[in-house]
Amino acid sequence: GLPEGWEMRFTVDGIPYFVDHNRRTTTYIDPRTG
């Protein structure tokens, strides 16, 4: 799974992105792969 505090969501286009609730940021880069 994802690191603690992270969540995976999808855009309206079906593109996955990642929400970091710890820092309240979003990124398209998987936190597991950097």
Score class of each variant (00 low, 15 high):
Phe10Met: 11
Phe10Arg: 07
Arg23Ala: 13
Val12Arg: 10
Asp30Arg: 00
Thr27Trp: 02
Val19Thr: 06
Phe10Val: 08
Phe18Leu: 01
Thr25Met: 13
Arg9Asn: 07
Gly34Tyr: 09
Gly14Val: 00
Arg9Tyr: 10
Gly34Asn: 14
Gly34Ser: 13
Pro16Trp: 05
Arg9Trp: 08
Ile29Trp: 12
Gly5Phe: 06
Trp6Ala: 02
Phe10Ala: 03
Met8Asn: 00
Asp20Glu: 06
Val12Met: 11
Ile29Ala: 06
Asp30Thr: 00
Trp6Glu: 01
Ile15Gly: 02
Asp13Lys: 11
Trp6Asp: 01
Asp30Pro: 04
Leu2Asp: 03
Ile15Ser: 06
Asp13Leu: 10
Pro16Phe: 05
Thr27Pro: 04
Met8Phe: 04
Glu4Phe: 12
Thr25Trp: 11
Glu4Lys: 11
Asn22Val: 15
Gly14Thr: 00
Pro16Leu: 09
Pro16Met: 12
Tyr28His: 15
Ile29Leu: 11
Thr11Glu: 05
Thr26Asn: 08
Asp30Gln: 00
Ile29Gly: 03
Arg23Met: 10
Tyr17Lys: 04
Arg24Pro: 05
Thr25Lys: 15
Asp30Asn: 00
Gly1Trp: 11
Thr27Leu: 02
Phe10Asn: 03
Pro3Arg: 05
Val12Gln: 13
Gly14Lys: 06
Leu2Phe: 08
Gly34His: 12
Leu2Gly: 04
Gly34Glu: 14
Asp20His: 08
Phe18Pro: 03
Gly1Val: 13
Phe10Lys: 06
Arg9Ser: 05
Pro3Glu: 04
Gly1Met: 14
Thr26Pro: 07
Arg24Thr: 08
Arg32Trp: 07
Arg23Thr: 15
Pro31Val: 02
Gly34Met: 13
Gly34Gln: 14
Asp20Ser: 07
Glu7His: 04
Phe18Trp: 14
Gly14His: 07
Trp6Phe: 07
Phe18Ala: 00
Met8Ile: 14
Tyr17Gln: 06
Thr27Glu: 07
Val19Glu: 08
Thr25Pro: 00
Thr27Arg: 04
Arg32Gln: 05
Glu7Asn: 02
Gly5Met: 05
Asn22Gly: 09
Asp30Trp: 00
Arg9Gln: 08
Gly14Met: 06
Pro31Gly: 01
Tyr28Arg: 13
His21Lys: 09
Gly5Leu: 04
Gly14Asp: 08
Arg24Asn: 15
Val12Tyr: 11
Thr26Gly: 08
Thr11Ser: 09
Pro3Asp: 06
Tyr17His: 03
Trp6Arg: 01
Thr11Tyr: 02
Asp20Pro: 02
Trp6Gln: 01
Thr26Gln: 12
His21Phe: 08
Val19Leu: 09
Arg23Gln: 13
Leu2His: 01
Met8Tyr: 01
Arg9Glu: 05
Phe10Ser: 06
